[in-house]
Design a binder for these strands. Sequence first.
RNA 1: GAGCCUGUAGCUCAACGGCAGAGCGCUACACUGUGGCUGUAGAUGUUGCGGGUUCGAAACCCGUCAGGCUCCCCA
Length: 425
Amino acid sequence: MASKIQPVKGTREFYPEQMFLRNFIYEKVRAASQAFGYQEWDAPFIEPIDLYAAKSGEELVKKQSFTFQDRGGDYVTLRPELTPSLARMIAAKQNELTQPVRWWSFGPFWRYEQPQKGRSREFFQWNIDMLGVNSPEADAELIAIAATFLRSVGLNPQLATIFVNNRRLMDSEFDALDIVPEKRLEVSSLVDRRSKMEPANWSEYALELGLTKKQVNGLKDMLGNFELWKKSDELTRLFTAVEALGVKEYVKFDPNIMRGLLYYTGTVFEAFETSGSLKRAILGGGRYDNLLADVGGQPLPGVGFAMGDVVMGIILQENGLLPDFVPTPAAALVTIFDESMWKKSFELAAQLRNVGLNVMVYPEPVKLQKQFKFADKMKIKIALTVGPDEAANDQVAVKNLVNGEQVTVKREAVVESIRKILARV
RNA sequence: GAGCCUGUAGCUCAACGGCAGAGCGCUACACUGUGGCUGUAGAUGUUGCGGGUUCGAAACCCGUCAGGCUCCCCA
């Protein structure tokens, strides 16, 4: 055997089965995005490294992205995220674009990370954003889109929940606890980490950060207070809008949701599977009102979220929500009776394709048994045979492979016969 | 970047340091104009790769590659 060259670590090969799932997710993503009128767009897959260096930390760009020199000596990066490209493209045509901008995208991304369950180095991600509007109602729309998607793939509110919080609310709570601004970053990551740590260890860690006992206790009270949203006008309005949009049952307030990103300014949200084995977020996003100004554009508020295909695929599989795999788009298989009938079979297939039917012809005049077995494995619903008997009378044998019934019809009547079977199964 | 676990037929997995196996799948035939179900027969392999220990290694040791879990990170 020749030596095997393996695929690059962390990449996935998409055999037809996997491609079917990827397309299933893509179709549902597109349907949810389009249901709210969003436009599909995309950015380059390769970007200058500087695009990310401005916003992301240097370590992230250097250690967790696929970066290399092109033949001209410039440093380029396989895009690890879409938002910087979005910000650039919006900024370039800021006065030209009809606002609000509502855009969605589904494409490949690369991150040089340790592959694990739910995480690969090459993955597909859904990004969807609204720019030009700063309101809790706009935030609610994005959350409703996420909920619409979850519902469309069969993840009901018992299986998946979108947890919502607000950065401004948290900031005012931190103020009330006299947590100084310099500590906010550390405290944010402390909050982020709470679900992953034992309560005792967490408290200890909090004290190590230099918080007083009073502050730690105040923090604990705050993070356990699921009525805290009532203090926030933004969240109150958001929940009202979410209810009106018909997705209330998917959305819960949770003061523990922080999001690692620095650029979020208001609403933040993350969806999790409620009972699954994965601790990873299904999707996450929030409001980023300073981002465009940060990359040199005119200030423009925005809200959006991203969802990866890897976690989604695992969750669908674990919940038995994978769609039934359809191996081929062919509605019918035309068999080849023997060498003398080859021409007749090709002509029949061409005739059927002319009226828009997807038709596959068996490529060799082998035993009919083998050809039918192939049709069965490919889950093709109809088999068409032109043997000497049929050819003599200008007829075709049409077999319904789902129920086993076979009829012999005139060649002109084949299309009707096929359509009848397809309408029934 | 760090720690732990795993790698055997296409797939899921067995095999005390002593003949490399089972189930499923695959191929052929039963069935010379028809699939699924059944029966019979058959083919599976550098035990991830490279080295070492041993009379003898799938097993033990070292390295390496790949996967999984955790830490880190999660744009």
